[in-house]
Design a protein around this nucleic acid. Sequence first.
DNA 1: CGAAATTTTGATCATGATCAACATTAGTGG
DNA 2: CCACTAATGTTGATCATGATCAAAATTTCG
Lengths: 229, 229
Amino acid sequence: MLSQSLAQAPVRPHWGRTLSREPAENALFSGHPELITTKMTYGRGKRIFGEGETAEYVYQVLCGAVRSYRLLSDGRRQIGAFRLAGDAFGLESGLTHHATAEAVIETTVCIIKYRSLELAAKSDAAVACELWAMIAGELRGAEDHIVLLGRKSAAQRVATFLLEMDRRLADAGQFTLPMSRCDIADYLGLRLETVSRVVSQLQAKGVVALAGRRQIQLRDRARLAEMDA
Amino acid sequence: MLSQSLAQAPVRPHWGRTLSREPAENALFSGHPELITTKMTYGRGKRIFGEGETAEYVYQVLCGAVRSYRLLSDGRRQIGAFRLAGDAFGLESGLTHHATAEAVIETTVCIIKYRSLELAAKSDAAVACELWAMIAGELRGAEDHIVLLGRKSAAQRVATFLLEMDRRLADAGQFTLPMSRCDIADYLGLRLETVSRVVSQLQAKGVVALAGRRQIQLRDRARLAEMDA
DNA sequence: CGAAATTTTGATCATGATCAACATTAGTGG
DNA sequence: CCACTAATGTTGATCATGATCAAAATTTCG
């Protein structure tokens, strides 16, 4: 059975290529030694910054995963994005963050002072361009997510999510999700029961295979892609 | 921090709000005569650019309204944003637009060649900062919309929409919507019948008053605001 | 004025939410 | 290592919100 072969996978959790890859040469502005960067590690569930706090740093995930979310007054939560290894975040314009960022699992980030970036951007067009590309990428992701939340069915949302995670975590058809069903639901604008049901149906149809709850293998990526619009 | 310097940039951060106000002196990069701008007028429903086309220009609405949307393969449409007088759009990084932009009503836009802006941004930090502030504003708007689409009820979505339009079109409690119920529905992730029903209920409760279908008066803004989360 | 487009309203339906119970997994201390 | 507990996830039953189908009313425009 498949779950067996997955269970026989290396005991050490393997997070696909992003976590295993050395991020050093991918690091944010690594070509600019005048920018002082610091590493920080946050435990599972720990807050990196909160909505309304002053934005002092730009962050890049070195390993782990971060959720960025906003709450409605009655406690409903909407996760706007997951930040995985290599992703930059915290690039707000304006004085304060407009979302809360938390480590989903133990996460190490690279931090750069906003003020030093600002200075570098003024004298170095390459820095400005890289910042531009980063925020444009975030905007693109947000627009994709708007289409998903506004117009896709529950099954389509989950299919899109699985393909996105495959692409971002491994692109090898097999990956380990860092986040819970509740996090996924709050990202996809669904309830966790709905996410669980859709995943179960995909498993029953042989489109995906699960080992444990977090380790997922895509057995029929073409079918997932055609479910998605 | 960077955002501070943006706020202090020698550019008025608030463009004209109303359709009637003369936007000439607020125009995009008016302090930079080396940037050649052109005016263009598009009739009701006319396409300004399409998804997948090469991004050659940045646009600013002088008067009128623009909808920016993407389609799913089965024809479902999701409007990501409405651009009203003063708003800039088309700031994609990368070669192609990732949404289609159409004039909702007769609309005049100011156009700047993307390439000339790029050149200007490399030599002039103020231009780069203004571009940064514009795209960061778009990102903020997209994140607000993600919360609406992911977690708000139909009634909350309509309430949020009416308050947003009031703020952006008039802020005087009375405004004329440039867009149809269908456009509103495709923006809010609802069907047009649902939008119509919610508006009718708000009218019955005396929260809003309608003159014709497009002219709306907010009679109880506090109630709308508390409906919204 | 008349035709087409848009909007409203009503009736019914389907999707996903909610409530509830149970199963599984992960974490903790003996 | 196992037992115990808490956290997470699955599954079932029922409900509610908003979608869909349909028709009438209103507005817009030639």
